[in-house]
Design a protein around this nucleic acid. Structure first.
Lengths: 388, 388
DNA sequence: ATTGATAATTCAAATGATTTGAGTTAATCC
DNA sequence: GGATTAACTCAAATCATTTGAATTATCAAT
């Protein structure tokens, strides 16, 4: 139940696996790159990289992109990821619906689907998931034999492999090994995660956090979540429930952070004013009209966000904080521009390469795409990733 | 300036190095253990472990401890760490003094020293450090050829290798590559860190956090620091300044967390009441007398600590939080027992194996010992540790 | 007391991946 | 046009782990 990487010894086979991943990661980072340059970056010999690249080309993971002459000497043959070389499945299970997405190697969504759920007991969910998988693979048949794995996002709290005790929104999932269940049904390696962590990975693979190794993602779900990426890897906490920033109490107000800063928070605030904001579009419309009740909420929200920023920056010292999730872009932008950032923070540095607060992807699919991104991040050998 | 593990490829040599570390780590964890058991834990063959152990014995890192029969079959030869097989130096530079400690492989302090500082410019400090090194090695001559490295603790804020800009308490250290400076002068590999991180490692190597892979350490220094250990490794943040929990503002009060919870905080509180508490002993005496002013401070301190706990638990989901540093044991105990822990936390689990808040080591040497522990933690192959 | 099962350990050979070193190719520089 | 530079390839060497057979020591059952 405790998340803990147990240290494993290394051997030739695991070395090769690790080096393959690292090569793929370098290629992705560079876009197109030659063998010698990869070798230098990884402290390997060109010969080794040559061998690995030959293998990766043979497996269809890499494509030759012609020679590029940059100075003296033989121009290096450039290699780039083959987008169709590998695919990752993203599944997001919500209390009332399942979202799914199929991402290619480069992080592009080649298919997305959703089904409404009536019951959310395991067997019902599994049937839908199976069906979604077939549906998406029919849209991209090449992917069938090139699946790297599936990321699954579910409402927590959970342990490493499944939802455990406490008030989850899903019924019948308590004490079930969800990871194994999905893995068996999908026939794929599965990574389980919460929405904020997944969303963070989405930004890392194909969003504003590309190339940023350490950042935090403040995620608007039902409440307020936090995804922590440190040195290219998610910080999940001992029991997999790190990032519940929304639960942090605000001393003066007698409430939690997410009471002022979440989708439920706006909705109930507006409801008290006799207004209904069922979905993101309706919120967007109210914002375009500069609805006074919404603006009042935004006022307290920026204060809360400023506080959240102070907590995250001082505890985690990230390169940047990304704000995203189930909110209209315009509101996220408003929050990003209007939130007061305290000077008293380790993140308040003169020549920072990134703004302290960046707007990330919004919308309903973020976490779903992120679920798949979890798999890609692993396949592309993130900095601190270990051999299994 | 950004802390980032750059991914490196693997080869036979690096595999061996990693496996050596992993074997040492297993031996330390178990106390005494046989080869076959290590092999199982690390997914290596007994033959491999045999080879490595032969090497480690030859190098004096391990000792044979006789056979232990536990059931059928040939009783396994037990191996244990040779305490005198390796040593780590810990250096703590404060504005007005330098503390030093020499730890053996098992984490026992075999020598400690301190010198008062008049000036704290780099060259003056370096001379003292050099001298301390010689002094301590004279006390434990065996250590001379068995030094694993040195951990150095300094007041931040700093980047990876040195103190950068902003208000450090040390003069003349800005923009200096302190790590390289120490490494050159000591002739040892150096790890630089802040006090809270080092203290956390001390608890992991030789304190209450032994065997706990993910925990947080709330450290009373001048202010309030936080050391984060995730999966056996320190979470340092993008710029090495993670854990500045004391800087987090408390909304209602218009102050920071460390205004209510730090050594400076008690001292100024008492001073306002006309009392002086220069050091830990005087604080201890006041506490034994149940001094009303101190008790009043403790009242607000427990509230602040409760808030800090809520933040740390919800963001990091650690197995436990350790409280320690420059406070008398009695006060730490008081805080640990009296602090209200919110039910609304991911850490509020029914059958947790550890209490949520544990008292750690206190006193003036904690961070110094921790500095050395940073080196030991690396040498003993912590779970997530990578090959250089 | 003898015999068989179990488990740790060693030995020697095989395997797998990387490195090494010599040679080839194709650019730029002078 | 020749020298220099750099990427790349080929074949052999190296290093550490794995494999499989043999050895040793203990427990358990006959």
């Amino acid at each position: 139940m405790i998340v803990q990487t147990k240290p494993k010894g290394s051997n030739a086979e695991r070395s090769r696996y690790r080096n393959r991943q690292a090569v793929l990661g370098q290629v992705r980072e560079a876009g197109a790159i030659g063998r010698a340059e990869i070798a230098r970056a990884l402290s390997l010999t060109t010969q080794t990289v040559s061998n690995i690249i030959a293998e990766l080309c043979h497996d269809g993971m890499l494509l030759e992109k012609g020679r590029r002459s940059v100075g003296r000497g033989l121009p290096a043959m450039q290699y780039a990821l083959n987008p169709k070389g590998g695919y990752a499945l993203g599944i997001e299970v919500r209390p009332d619906a399942i979202f799914a997405a199929l991402l290619d190697m480069q992080g592009n969504a080649v298919a997305t689907e959703r089904v409404a759920l009536r019951g959310n007991r395991p067997d019902a969910v599994m049937d839908h998931v199976s069906h979604l998988q077939t549906q998406m693979l029919d849209q991209e048949p090449v992917a069938r034999n090139r699946m790297l794995g599936a990321g699954v996002v579910m409402p927590g709290p959970f342990g490493v492999t499944g939802i455990t005790g406490m008030g989850s929104d899903l019924t019948g999932w308590q004490e079930i090994d969800a990871e194994a269940l999905f893995a068996e049904r999908l026939g794929l390696p599965v990574v389980l995660s919460n929405d904020a962590n997944a969303a963070a990975m989405a930004e890392r693979i194909n969003g504003v956090a590309q190339g940023i190794a350490s950042f935090a993602y403040l995620y608007f779900g039902a409440g307020l979540g936090l995804g922590l990426v440190h040195d290219g890897q998610l910080v999940r906490g001992a029991y997999g429930n790190a990032g519940e920033i929304g639960h942090i109490p605000i001393p003066g107000l007698g409430g939690k952070l997410e009471d002022a800063l979440s989708r439920l928070s706006v909705q109930s605030h507006l409801r008290r004013a006799g207004k209904e904001a069922r979905d993101i579009d309706m919120l967007d419309r109210l914002f375009q009209q500069r609805d006074p009740d919404l603006m009042a909420w935004l006022e307290t929200a920026t204060t809360a966000l400023g506080h959240a920023m102070a907590i995250v920056e001082n505890i985690f010292d990230p390169q940047a904080v990304v704000l995203g999730g189930a909110m209209p872009d315009a509101i996220l932008d408003h929050l990003v521009t209007r939130t007061p950032l305290t000077d008293l923070s380790v993140s308040n540095r003169p020549h920072a390469p990134h703004p302290r607060l960046i707007r990330g992807a919004s919308g309903r699919m973020t976490a779903t795409l992120g679920a798949a991104a979890l798999i890609l991040n692993r396949a592309l050998g993130a900095p601190g990733s270990n051999v299994h």
